[in-house]
Computed example of a mutant assay.
Amino acid sequence: MIYSIDVHIEAPVNDTEVTDRVADAVRNLFPDAEIEQQPGRLVAETHTLDPFSDRLHEQEILDTARREFLKNARKGGFSFRLKKQAAFQGVINFAVGNPDELGDIEVDVIVREPDVETFVDHVAPPTEDGQPVDPSRIERD
Rank of each mutant, 00 (worst) to 15 (best):
M1H: 02
I2R: 12
Y3G: 07
S4R: 07
I5T: 06
D6E: 14
H8M: 00
I9H: 02
A11C: 06
N14W: 15
D15T: 15
D15E: 14
T16G: 03
E17M: 13
E17D: 14
E17L: 08
V18G: 05
V18K: 10
V18P: 15
V18Q: 09
T19H: 03
T19I: 13
D20M: 10
R21D: 13
V22L: 08
A23I: 01
D24L: 10
A25G: 09
N28H: 12
N28S: 13
P31I: 01
D32T: 06
A33K: 03
A33T: 03
A33H: 07
E34K: 05
E34L: 07
I35P: 12
I35Y: 02
E36H: 08
Q37V: 13
Q38E: 09
G40W: 05
R41H: 01
L42P: 06
L42M: 02
V43D: 00
A44I: 10
E45K: 07
T48W: 04
L49T: 04
F52K: 01
F52Y: 01
D54I: 01
H57S: 13
Q59V: 12
L62P: 06
D63W: 04
T64L: 11
T64Y: 15
A65G: 05
R66V: 05
R66D: 00
R66N: 02
R67Q: 15
F69N: 01
F69Y: 07
L70W: 10
L70A: 12
K71G: 13
K71H: 14
R74F: 09
K75Y: 03
K75A: 10
K75R: 12
G76H: 12
G77M: 00
F78E: 02
K83N: 15
Q85V: 14
A86R: 09
A87L: 06
A87W: 01
A87Q: 08
Q89T: 08
Q89H: 11
G90R: 07
G90D: 03
V91G: 04
I92F: 12
I92Y: 04
I92H: 09
N93D: 13
N93M: 07
N93E: 15
F94A: 02
F94T: 04
A95I: 11
V96A: 10
N98P: 14
P99H: 09
P99Q: 13
L102W: 11
L102I: 09
D104T: 15
I105D: 05
I105M: 03
E106A: 05
V107S: 04
D108T: 05
D108I: 03
V109N: 01
V111P: 01
V111G: 02
R112G: 03
P114M: 03
E117S: 13
E117K: 12
F119P: 00
V120I: 08
V120P: 02
P125K: 02
T127P: 09
T127K: 08
D129H: 15
D129R: 15
P132G: 01
D134F: 12
S136W: 10
E139F: 15
R140G: 11
D141T: 12
